[in-house]
Design a protein around this nucleic acid. Structure first.
Length: 934
RNA sequence: GGGCGGUUAGCUCAGUUGGUUAGAGCGCUACCUUGACAUGGUAGAGGUCACAGGUUCAACUCCUGUAUCGCCCACCA
């Protein structure tokens, strides 16, 4: 690339600039940015013009994200804000990079949560779902869904999310339900789905099984009871310890460790089970830890998962003593029937005590499992459930993550994933609910003969008319529905109409947009959702990708795990704690851009965020800063106008002012780093890059510097060039920022220049970063100027010289730089350091009473006659001398160490030598200055 | 019990293969309403990089251990 570049080329801009015609002027911009109306205006504009929509486009590379579908019962919380801001930033960035970017939104039917909400409202009317019956109840839920569901989808719009709303899906849509049925039937046929009796986590309130992962354990202070079981034909007792004494009514055995000498003689004997007339055997099993408690364990196969396995091994009876609400059933003595589990516990303990069989009770803390939705204590419960065999699915799903076909960010979640995948258990997919996908299974209830012979359930894609075995038409569908995750694990392909994508005319969509590119989700659903999507993708992918290549079948390539949002005390933000600010209120108060920017600014990859409302000032202030920079540019454009196209052609880089050269270099280096950070999903760094560039480089230095030309004696044409260049950079920088702050950037982009009616920043390409335009020389020259200015400002500050007071600057050059090259910067010094005159001296003369400084070896003096007293300056110089001496000493000792000089790389040693000489020279000059002050 | 992550300025956090004068935002102090912005500007104070060893010419950075905070997994009846 040459050095003579048109402005439009050096930033790769194709702005719709119409010379001399301006839409707006600075008077149309308020002094303070007020987001509310701006946000509404542009979101409507984007949506009405269909800018969010993506189509199959062979010319472009697709970039796809599927939203983690929020519950329809949900309202926006800070976790969503973070999650969706990230997705929107990724999508907007790729869209501007030229990808066909498609963000597919939708909601999840959320079985238990939604059913709970509707049941609660029924309860207010004094009704239960059973009063209505299944059909009426479901109508009611759908009604609720239409009326209140999906609030969150509206809220995403206020956040600025650029979802392809035409593609919005709901997990209970007909086409997604078809996917669920297809998957169930196919996996059943493949032998991966089976029905079995199993100990499940039973919620006695919701009357449903919930998965292991949906149980939350909380530590609780409780008691452990020691109960004596009389041993038959013996005077001895078996003493067992239990925290749930009521389950003893379901005991089938007492177990000891086979190696335990104390009890060897008891194995094979019978013990009588107190409070009942049953007798149970004493058995030996390795599961028992002889060190714990008494070394004897009561075995309750129907109510404890470990006991279940012991029971299997020893062929013990499974005695279920509870009904679905955890009340004692008819398996127990009449006295206890119908009692709630805790009531029963009380009564039984007192009965045991009465009989002298309650040996003792001790305090005991244990972790107790609760339903993660209603917090009811879970009861391990034996019941008929449907399961998915996980082992065959887990193996390929693990290897694509281990071999980085799917990449996790941060990578450490790979280990968590691996651990779960290698210790996986079968997935219980049936739920005793009404709201959800009903299990596509029917049972024949034909006649006596059939009940005996037609044991096979009928698994079918469509409602069967008759029993294939006996021909009976008397069929009953399984009452249960499927786990909510059984539909969400298909999300990345079910959104495109699979398995009937061809019928729906969506086969091209599926081929084009699948696999998706980036999944953005919270790490707490890595097992619920992420892992299972990988399994489903690999298992069903080949049916539509027509390929066995895992690369083509995985549901996504990169997974970005978001931070957890905590409050200032470190607690997880949650509705129940009430410690989460309402995002909608935050957006109203600070603006969507501010909320978006702030959360990303605070969100380092893989680290928790400590959030508080006030932090949003960071984003708000930043938006305002950008806003005002825009106002400044508009004001100047209004006054001077922009350069014409022809004069813009004269932007020979070598003829540019240092400020121009420098900001251009800074822009490209910022854009390059931004690109890298985006590719690495380091969005936190992206916010910092644009923040620093806009605020410090562009506003603090560049804008302040061009003022010297804008308000100086330059020709009108020169001033117009300055304005044009400033606008070009600003325009490009707005585009860099747009993915994070879409609204304010659109508003300003539309205002700074005349645009075509349908033009939008969100579909304007980014200015491609060009490494050749990153210029170290310009940057280091700028550092020199900045250091001189900062040095003078420091003197002013320390000497208490009023900012309004003009000073003169006398420079004594070291010979590296000449006077002419420094004189070029006089305008900057004037404006930024209030230097009224710049002169040079060559000999040893110096202004008699003066403050002084050294920057990069160049010495300067500020005559202070009448300004300050010498003592103050001596003090100031003393501080500086002390600082430099310290540095010098450190360098000296390094260089005096022969080991360092011998072993360290040449460049490092050379650098230290250079430092030594620089510090030495500076120190000498500073000391002379002190002497000169007398 | 196992695994993972953190510990850097008063607070919240950057610091990418070991070599920078250890940075930013907020807060604090002083000064400034200078023709974009007081939601602003300029300058300043503030850190033995949790602690103890080790590797190295050189450690905030690598290794070992300790402390402490927080997550995740498995749970002993």
């Amino acid at each position: 690339m040459g050095t003579s570049l048109q402005s439009g080329i050096y930033l790769s801009i194709s702005h719709n600039f119409i010379s001399g015609v301006f839409l707006s002027d600075s008077s149309s911009l308020a002094k303070v940015y007020s987001p509310t109306d701006v946000e509404k205006k542009w979101y409507t504009f984007w949506e009405e013009n269909n800018f969010f929509h993506a189509e199959v486009n062979p010319e472009k590379q697709p970039y796809t994200i599927v939203i983690p579908p929020p519950n329809i019962t949900g309202v926006l919380h800070m976790g969503h804000v973070l999650n969706n801001t990230l997705q929107d930033a990724f999508i907007r960035y790729r869209r501007m990079q030229g990808y066909e970017a498609c963000w597919i939104p939708g909601t999840d039917h959320a079985g238990i949560a939604t059913q709970n909400v509707v049941e609660k409202s029924l309860k207010k009317e004094g009704k239960t779902r059973h009063d209505l019956g299944r059909k009426k109840f479901l109508e009611r839920v759908w009604q609720w869904k239409e009326q209140y569901g999906g609030v969150i989808i509206q809220q995403l719009r206020t956040l600025g999310c650029s979802c392809d709303w035409e593609r919005e899906r709901f997990t209970l849509d007909a086409s997604l339900s078809a996917a669920v049925t297809e998957v169930f039937v196919r996996m059943y046929e493949d032998g991966l789905i089976y029905r079995g009796k199993y100990i499940v986590n039973w919620c006695p309130k919701d009357h449903t099984a919930i998965s292991d992962d949906e149980v939350t354990y909380t530590e609780q202070q409780g008691k452990i009871y020691y109960i004596q079981y009389p041993i038959k034909d013996s005077s001895e007792f078996a003493v067992v310890a239990t925290t749930r004494p009521e389950t003893m009514l379901g005991d089938s055995a007492i177990a000891v460790n086979p190696a335990d000498e104390r009890y060897k003689h008891l194995v094979g004997k019978m013990a009588s089970l107190p409070l009942t007339d049953r007798e149970i055997p004493i058995i030996a099993d390795d599961y028992v830890d002889p060190e714990f408690g008494t070394g004897m364990v009561k075995i309750t196969p129907a109510h404890d998962p470990n006991d279940y396995w012991v029971g299997q091994r020893h062929n013990l009876r499974q005695i279920n003593i509870f009904d679905i609400s955890a009340r004692l059933n008819d398996e127990v003595p009449t006295k206890y029937r119908g009692l709630d589990r805790y009531e029963a516990r009380k009564i039984m303990l007192s009965d045991l005590a009465e009989q002298g069989l309650l040996l003792k009770e001790e305090d005991h803390t244990n972790k107790i499992g609760r339903c993660y939705r209603c917090e009811t204590v879970i009861e391990p419960y034996l019941s008929d459930q449907w399961f998915v065999k996980m082992k065959p699915l887990a193996e390929p799903a693990l290897s694509v993550v281990l071999d980085k076909t799917i990449q996790f960010y941060p990578d450490r979640w790979t280990k968590v994933y691996e651990h779960w995948m290698t210790n996986i258990r079968d997935w219980c997919i049936s739920r005793q609910l009404w709201w959800g996908h009903r299990i596509p299974v029917w049972y024949c209830v034909g006649d006596e003969r059939c009940l005996l012979e037609c044991k096979q359930p009928i698994v079918s894609r469509t409602t069967p008319e008759k029993c294939p075995y006996c021909g009976s038409t008397n069929l009953r569908q399984d009452e249960d529905v499927l786990d909510t995750w059984f539909s969400s694990w298909l999300w990345p392909f079910s959104v495109h109409g699979w398995p009937n994508e061809e019928q729906a005319g969506k086969e091209k969509e599926l081929a084009y947009f699948y696999p998706t590119d980036t999944l953005v989700t919270a790490p707490d659903i890595i097992f619920f959702w992420v892992a299972r999507m990988v399994m489903a993708g690999l298992y069903f992918g080949p049916s539509f990708t027509k390929s066995d290549d895992p690369k083509k079948n995985i549901p996504f390539r990169d997974v970005y795990f978001t931070s957890l949002v905590r409050d200032e005390k470190g607690r997880k933000m949650s509705k129940s704690l009430g410690n989460s600010p309402e995002p909608v209120d935050l957006i109203a108060e600070y603006g969507a851009d501010a909320v978006r920017f702030t959360i990303l600014f605070l969100a380092p990859l893989g680290q928790d965020i400590f959030y508080s409302k006030e932090k949003n000032e960071i984003g708000r202030n930043f938006a305002n800063k950008i806003w005002n920079a825009g106002r400044f540019l508009l004001m100047n454009r209004e006054q001077t106008g922009e350069a014409t196209e022809t004069s813009k052609g004269d932007f020979n880089l070598n003829h540019l002012d240092l400020a121009d050269q420098w900001i251009l270099s800074r822009y490209h280096s910022t854009a390059l780093e931004l690109q890298k950070s985006m590719d690495e999903f380091d969005i936190n760094k992206v916010t910092k890059l644009v923040y620093d560039f806009f605020w410090h480089d562009y506003c603090d230095w560049y804008v302040e510097m061009i003022k010297s030309r804008l308000y100086g004696d330059e020709s009108l044409e020169a001033k117009q060039s300055v304005v044009s260049r400033a606008l070009d950079i600003y325009d490009a920088a707005l585009r860099l920022l747009h993915p994070i702050m879409p609204f304010v950037t659109e508003e300003l982009w539309q205002n700074i220049r005349q645009r075509q009616p349908q033009a939008t920043i969100m579909r304007t390409p980014l200015a491609a970063p060009d490494p050749e335009l990153v210029n170290i020389q310009f940057e280091s020259e700028m550092v020199f100027v900045q250091n001189v200015i900062e040095s003078i400002r420091n003197i002013r500050g320390e000497m208490q010289i009023a900012p309004s007071k003009e000073i003169s600057l006398v420079m004594k050059l070291s010979g590296i730089r000449d006077a002419a090259s420094i004189q070029k910067y006089e305008g900057y010094l004037k404006r930024l350091a209030r230097v009224s005159s710049l002169t040079f001296i060559e000999d040893n003369t110096r202004p008699m009473l003066s403050a002084s400084g050294v920057v990069q070896g160049e010495e300067f003096f500020i005559p202070l006659a009448g300004l300050i007293d010498a003592d103050a300056e001596k003090l100031r110089l003393g501080k500086e001398i002390e600082r430099i001496s310290g540095l010098l000493k450190a360098v000296e000792s390094k260089l005096n160490n022969s080991n360092f000089v011998d072993k360290a790389p040449k460049e490092v040693v050379e650098k230290e030598r250079e430092k030594l000489s620089n510090f030495g020279v500076t120190l000498e000059k500073l000391q002379k200055s002190v002497e000169a002050l007398g």
